[in-house]
Design a binder for these strands. Structure first.
Length: 569
RNA sequence: GCAUCUAUAGCUCAGUUGGAUAGAGCGCUCCCCUCCUAAGGGAGAGGCCACAGGUUCGAUUCCUGUUAGGUGCACCA
């Protein structure tokens, strides 16, 4: 597609023969009547020692508008406002859509680049609650989007399958395991055991010592401990997979922390070789106080490894195995400082510089209850499968009411309910906390996933109602799409690939969710303004075609977020 | 205590690396299904962009300070 910004920047440069970065100065006017692109001349005023108005007028007088890309240039205040040729714009967008269809918006900017996205990463033997939902859904969306942009992406579920907690679990299981039937609802039972042993540890320092020792045994490959640990892991993965299936989330690898346990010694040796490791109270630490990052422990006093060491081993392993250009950690902001620490230490791991630079913490806000923090012990956690099932139930009720004869009700209710939950988790700036509220999370009106689905279904049903096939691009007369409502849609469609690139640059999913809302609103406006099925064959074809392509982009964008489109609503 | 993040309509949030009149949704008041799905659309009310300074032709946006809240600071992950 023609890049209008590039073209305009080029023309401006020629008109005043300057080499500044013009393109980045170009912006969009607050409203469309003023123009499609605006060039503010204020920043040039200083260097050129002329008033912005004069500069704007000079550019206007000298600019070469041959070729019919630009229809008109206006000076308003210190702004130079450009009106692009709408017919060329419409033709460009529709032609591109005709060629690429579902791949419209995709690109090859990521070709040859490797990206790792680490997301979800729940602790095994613990419930999968709404605290884990955001990382899962955000990571999955980023995974899809990077892939769509041509990157070679590896999605990793870095399971929390290691650490003292398992020493505790093993001890608890040893003591009370025979009281529980782990075939039914195993995670709740394991959680129960964990709470019991944890309480005991608090009362009795000796028990805690035994637990730490169990973990040490596990690290050393003790047969009994490994066997129980494997059992916990299998049971947990089975449960988690059910949720991943519901959410449509996939991973390329499940190598959790345990996988790196035998790789920590090398890391410690390298770091000690750099002379940055100190001994303190029997433990080994790296002092990052001068960087304002506190100290980072890399080995406990009893010789056990700790998460930081395993994460560093992970970085080294991934650098070697995947040669990554970027490695994204989708983890809540509680661990901001921790990631700063290990990214700082990663500089000493003898890995390529591009890998060190590519380490990135995608930090997101916490999901909290209006009553305060969630607590497993107090039973205030909301489990993800409960949430998803409740979402589906509520949608089912609504469908029964509004559309009782609907086919595949269960299937569609699933798409809608889960779509609402996913959308809700992606639609605000990631760092902000969320208050969990059933009615907000499962709201189906207004700016929600179901709204976008509803508008999508509408694009489909209009075509169905028209009782004909989607027209061919060659049949479309562009003159029938120059009204305001149609143009508004076309302009949004034109921006789609820029939006995706922007998501990948900022790792902010809300850029895409907001965009889809805008597109859906624009279609809704178009639908209300314009009769689509009319007596005029040319108009009908053009409008049906616009409905069709809008549907494509709504579907593609939603799919990237992990949201499926229903056929009916 | 130190570090870090957040603060925009009654509520939940957008606001394009500083720009033209600060925008949505929910809720509230009206209006629109004999006509392509009302999970929709239209109109209206609602703002000292937390506060105070500074930088700038220009600040919701950048800097400093203040206030309020979140989070993190050694053998848990």
């Amino acid at each position: 597609m023609i890049n209008f910004k590039d073209e305009i920047a080029d023309k401006i440069k020629k008109a005043i023969s300057i080499e500044d970065d013009i393109k980045n100065l170009i912006e969009n006017p607050p409203n469309k009547d003023m123009g499609d692109y605006a060039f503010p001349c204020f920043s040039l005023a200083k260097t050129l020692r002329k008033s912005p108005m004069i500069i704007a007028n000079e550019i206007k007088d000298n600019i070469d508008l041959s070729g019919d890309l630009i229809e008109k240039v206006d000076v308003q205040g210190g702004y130079l406002n450009f009106f692009v040729n709408k017919k060329i714009l419409i033709n460009e967008v529709l032609k591109e859509l005709d060629e690429k269809k579902e791949n419209f918006g995709s690109s090859n900017i990521g070709n040859g680049k490797n990206i790792i996205v680490e997301y979800s990463s729940p602790n095994i033997a613990k419930p999968f609650h709404i605290g884990h939902l955001r990382t899962t859904v955000i990571g999955s969306a980023l995974y899809n989007i990077y892939k769509f942009l041509g990157y070679n992406v590896t999605g990793i579920n870095h399971l929390g399958d290691y650490g003292t907690q398992f020493g505790k679990m093993i001890e608890g299981y040893k003591r009370w395991g025979n009281e529980y039937d782990l075939n039914d609802n195993p995670i709740d039972k394991l959680m129960d055991i964990y709470v019991r042993i944890n309480n005991l540890c608090k009362e009795d320092e000796n028990v805690l010592e035994i637990c730490r020792d169990n973990f040490k045994k596990l690290e050393e490959g003790d047969e009994y401990c490994t066997k129980i640990w494997n059992k916990f892991k299998d049971l947990s993965l089975k449960e988690f997979q059910r949720i991943y299936d519901l959410l449509g989330v996939k991973f390329d690898s499940f190598t959790g922390e345990a996988f790196y346990a035998d790789k920590v010694d090398d890391v410690c040796k390298i770091l000690e070789g750099k002379g940055i490791v100190q001994e303190s109270e029997g433990a080994k630490i790296i002092d990052l106080e001068d960087k304002g990052l506190g100290v980072c422990m890399i080995r406990k006093a009893n010789g056990s490894s700790i998460y930081a060491t395993r994460d560093l081993a992970t970085i080294r392993y991934r650098a070697k195995t995947y040669d990554f250009d970027k490695c994204l950690y989708v983890v809540a902001y509680e661990q901001n400082q921790y990631f700063k620490q290990i990214f700082e230490i990663a500089k000493y791991l003898d890995i390529p510089e591009k890998c060190v630079k590519g380490l990135k913490h995608i930090s997101y806000g916490m999901t909290r209850l209006s009553t305060g923090k969630m607590s497993t012990r107090e039973g205030t956690v909301v489990k993800v499968d409960e949430l998803l099932n409740e979402a589906i139930d509520r949608v089912n009720k609504i469908i029964k009411e509004k559309n009782p004869d609907m086919e595949n009700r269960e299937e569609e209710a699933k798409k809608i309910g889960i779509g609402a939950v996913i959308f809700n988790n992606l639609c605000t700036t990631l760092v902000k906390d969320q208050i969990f509220d059933w009615d907000i999370m499962l709201n189906f009106n207004g700016e929600t996933g179901p709204y976008i689905q509803y508008i999508y279904v509408r694009t489909k049903s209009v075509i169905e109602k028209a009782g004909r096939n989607v027209p061919e691009f060659s049949e479309i007369d562009i003159n029938n799409l120059t009204d305001k409502a149609s143009l508004n849609i076309i302009e949004l469609l034109y921006n789609f690939s820029d939006v995706l690139v922007s998501v990948s640059e900022k790792n902010e999913t809300c850029i895409l969710t907001r965009y889809l809302l805008d597109l859906a609103k624009a279609y809704s406006n178009f639908y209300n303004e314009n009769k689509i099925i009319t007596d005029d064959e040319g108009i009908t074809k053009a409008r049906l075609y616009l409905s069709y392509v809008t549907g494509i982009v709504l579907k593609t964008g939603s799919k990237l977020l992990g949201i499926e489109m229903p056929d009916k609503m």
